[in-house]
Design a protein around this nucleic acid. Structure first.
Lengths: 201, 201
DNA sequence: AAATGACGTTAGTGTCCATTAACTGAATTG
DNA sequence: CAATTCAGTTAATGGACACTAACGTCATTT
C-alpha cells in the first residue's frame, strides 16, 4: 500500500518532492536568511535528510536560484500580460499596481528573499535574475514614459523602483493580529498610484 | 616621531581605530552582507589583523550592533527634532520626508544593512533596535493621525512603513553614472509626499 | 525475473571562520 | 625608572556545514 503521493509513479513523486523542497526553502530562507539555513534543515523540512537534497538540486545555491529565477519570471510574465491588455498609461499602471500588490501580498517570502539574498546567487543565476528584473522594470517604465512625457527613461525606471520599494515593504511590516488585509491592500495600492502619478515639480 | 593620529595619546588612537572599524564595517557589510565578511576582513580593512578587533568590540555581532543601534538612534533623534519644531501635520511630514531622504541618500550603506542583516543582531541589540524603530515610526504616525483623522493608529504606522520602503529603495537602485542626484532626491521626496497624502478612498 | 538506475541512507572530508591562548613591545602611571 | 596596562601579533581550537563516498532498496525496464 503506497501513499497517495507515490501512487502515480516515481517521476511524479520526484516532482512533488522537488516542489516541497522549494516551498520549504522559501519559508526557511525568508525566516532565517539563506546563510541561516543548512542543507540539513532544508531536507529535514521535507522529510528527507541532508545529502538527499543533492538528488534534486546541484547545490544549495541552485535551490535559491530556482526560487529567484522563478519569481522574477512570474513577475515579468504577469507584467507583460497586463501591458498586453492595453489601455491608457494610467489604467495600465493601475493594473500593474494591482498585479504587483497581489503578488507581494500573497508571496511575501520570496519577495523578502529577493531583496535580501540576491547576492548569494551563482553568477549565472544572478545575471539571469538581473536580466528579468530589468525587463520587468522596463514594462513599468514604458507606461511611465507615457504618463510623464517630460521625464527621461532613467527617471521612469527610478520611479518604478521606488514604487517597488513601497509595494515590497509589506513583508517587513509587523503584521501583528493582521486586522484587515483588504484595507491594508487598498491603502498600499492608493499610495503606489499616488507616488506613480506625483508630478515632478 | 609618532604619526598625527597617535600624537594625542593612546585613548584617542583607540577611538579613531574604533570609528575606522565601524566605517569599514558599514562599507563591507553593505557590499557583501554580514555573513560574507570575516573578522579577518574587518580588521584588514583598518590595517590591523583579525583578533585585534576583539580589543574594540566583544565580537562580530557587537560591531553590527553598534552600527544598527547607532543608525536607529540617529533617525529617532533627528525625527524628534523635526517634530519638535512644530507646524501643521502636513509641514512636519514634509520636513520628516526631507530629513529621511537626506539620511537615506547620504548613508545608503547602513540603510542597506538595516533592512538586510537585522536578524544577525544579538537578542539584546535586536530588541533595542526594534524599540528605537518603533519609536521612530510613531513620530511619523503621530503626524499622520493629524493628516488623516479617519485612519487608526495601525493604518498610520502602515503608511509610515510603506513610505520608508519607498525612501529606502535608493540603496537598491543601480546608480549607474548617477546622472543628477539632486533631481533624483527631488523626485523621491515628491513621491513620498504624494504617498503620505493619498486619500484612502 | 534479472538488470538497471534513481532516490534515499549514514559516514566521512575538507574548509571556513569566530573566538581564545600565549606572548610582545610600547605608552602610561606611580 | 620600575610596574602595569593595553593594543597588537601569531598560533591554536572547536564547531558548523557544504559537499562527496559508499552503500542499500525498491520501482521500472527488458
Amino acid at each position: 500500500m503506497t501513499g497517495p503521493d507515490t501512487a502515480t509513479g516515481r517521476s511524479l513523486a520526484k516532482a512533488s518532492r522537488r516542489s516541497s523542497l522549494l516551498a520549504e526553502a522559501a519559508r526557511l530562507f525568508a525566516q532565517h536568511g539563506y546563510n541561516g539555513v543548512s542543507i540539513e534543515d532544508l531536507g529535514a523540512a521535507s522529510g528527507i535528510s541532508g545529502p538527499a537534497v543533492y538528488r534534486h538540486f546541484a547545490g544549495k545555491a541552485a535551490v535559491l536560484g530556482a526560487l529567484l529565477v522563478g519569481v522574477s519570471r512570474d513577475l515579468l510574465e504577469g507584467g507583460r500580460a497586463v501591458a498586453a491588455d492595453g489601455g491608457t498609461p494610467g489604467t495600465v499602471l493601475a493594473r500593474l499596481v494591482d498585479f504587483h500588490a497581489d503578488f507581494a501580498l500573497s508571496h511575501p517570502d520570496v519577495i523578502r528573499i529577493q531583496d535580501r539574498d540576491m547576492d548569494s546567487l551563482s553568477p549565472g543565476d544572478a545575471a539571469e535574475v538581473r536580466r528579468l528584473q530589468r525587463a520587468y522594470i522596463d514594462v513599468w517604465a514604458d507606461q511611465l514614459r507615457g504618463l510623464h512625457p517630460g521625464e527621461d527613461r532613467a527617471a521612469a525606471r527610478f520611479r518604478a523602483q521606488a514604487v517597488f520599494g513601497l509595494l515590497n515593504s509589506t513583508p517587513h511590516s509587523t503584521h501583528r493580529a493582521d486586522a484587515d488585509p483588504a484595507a491594508r491592500r487598498e491603502r498600499l495600492v492608493r499610495m503606489a498610484v499616488a507616488a506613480l502619478s506625483a508630478p515632478v515639480g
